[in-house]
């Protein structure tokens, strides 16, 4: 029964997206293994976020196909893809600013109650989710802020909240767009630890500029440059690849480690 492709949770075939002639993603064949933490790296403007937008259907591909669990999802809409278990985060923190921190997570939990269209019911009926919400908040170190209005949180904490909300849906495949961007050292290591912990029973595809994080965390890496796959493999393979080093530093002298801050 176990064919080799059973282990591939997400696959793209010749995925391409052009903006008015400018090709942001070009013929990308990406294969993400189940259970892996897979990094998508590349210089600014390489097409990483565009890839995420394509995978989650926020953008329609110009050509090419996307398969999730062997099913062609190229034509599906964002909410349907999310319902299949692919949940993304955004490069710029995406929270609900005027909801409380706990309510943010509850929005993630709420859908499975099946009462999300019930306009005649009291919102008190959502309180049965509070315990679960608090557990998730605890996992990302935000429990003490549960009642706070989200807009008042510092940036790093908002990103952590975003991960908690994403986790609330218990996604099979989590897409994280630069989860540690704009964070201080302490927050970076906390979020790295968190990702490692929550990746236990799921697959993670993440965009990450911090090579320290990538090296310590990821099982596989795909390097994009100008919309094309430049190199892929383990960290050691990729870091030793001359083309990658050139792309990042514009010279062959330096090693990849530490590139891109």
């Amino acid at each position: 029964m176990a064919s080799p492709s059973d282990d591939i949770i997400l696959e793209t075939r010749a995925l391409t997206r052009a903006f008015k002639g400018f090709v942001a993603v070009s013929e990308v064949n990406l294969r993400v293994r189940r259970g892996h933490i897979h990094a998508l790296i590349g210089p600014n403007g390489a097409g990483k976020t565009t890839m995420f937008n394509l995978l989650t259907k926020f953008l329609i591909p110009t050509s090419g196909q996307i398969f999730y669990e062997g099913t062609d999802i190229t034509r599906e809409r964002p909410a349907e893809v999310a319902r299949r278990g692919i949940i993304r985060s955004f490069q710029i923190s995406a929270v609900f600013p005027h909801l409380s921190v706990r309510e943010n997570v509850r929005i993630g939990l709420q859908r499975r109650l099946g009462t999300s269209f019930h306009f005649w019911r009291s919102e008190r009926s959502l309180e049965c989710l509070d315990e679960q919400a608090d557990e998730l908040l605890d996992a990302v170190g935000l429990l003490e802020f549960a009642g706070e209005t989200t807009v008042n949180l510092p940036y790093g904490r908002k990103r952590a909240l975003e991960i908690a909300t994403t986790l609330a849906l218990d996604p099979a495949l989590m897409l994280l767009d630069e989860p540690t961007q704009g964070m201080g050292h302490e927050d970076v290591s906390r979020v790295t630890e968190l990702i490692r912990r929550v990746s236990k029973n799921r697959t993670v595809l993440m965009v990450e500029h911090n090579m320290g994080v990538v090296a310590g965390l990821c099982d596989a890496i795909t390097v994009l440059q100008r919309g094309q796959v430049l190199s892929e493999g383990s960290y050691e393979t990729v870091a030793a690849d001359q083309r990658v080093i050139e792309a990042y530093m514009g010279s062959t002298e330096t090693t990849l480690a530490g590139a891109h801050g």
């Binding site: 609900f96 600013p97 005027h98 509850r106 929005i107 993630g108 019911r121």
Partner: peptide
């Protein structure tokens, strides 16, 4: 209501609500 909560979320950040 539970519906009102979702509505509020959509008003606050529609792409995020969609991605959830």
């Amino acid at each position: 209501s539970p519906y009102g909560q979702v509505l509020k979320a959509i008003r606050e950040n529609e792409p995020r609500a969609l991605s959830l």
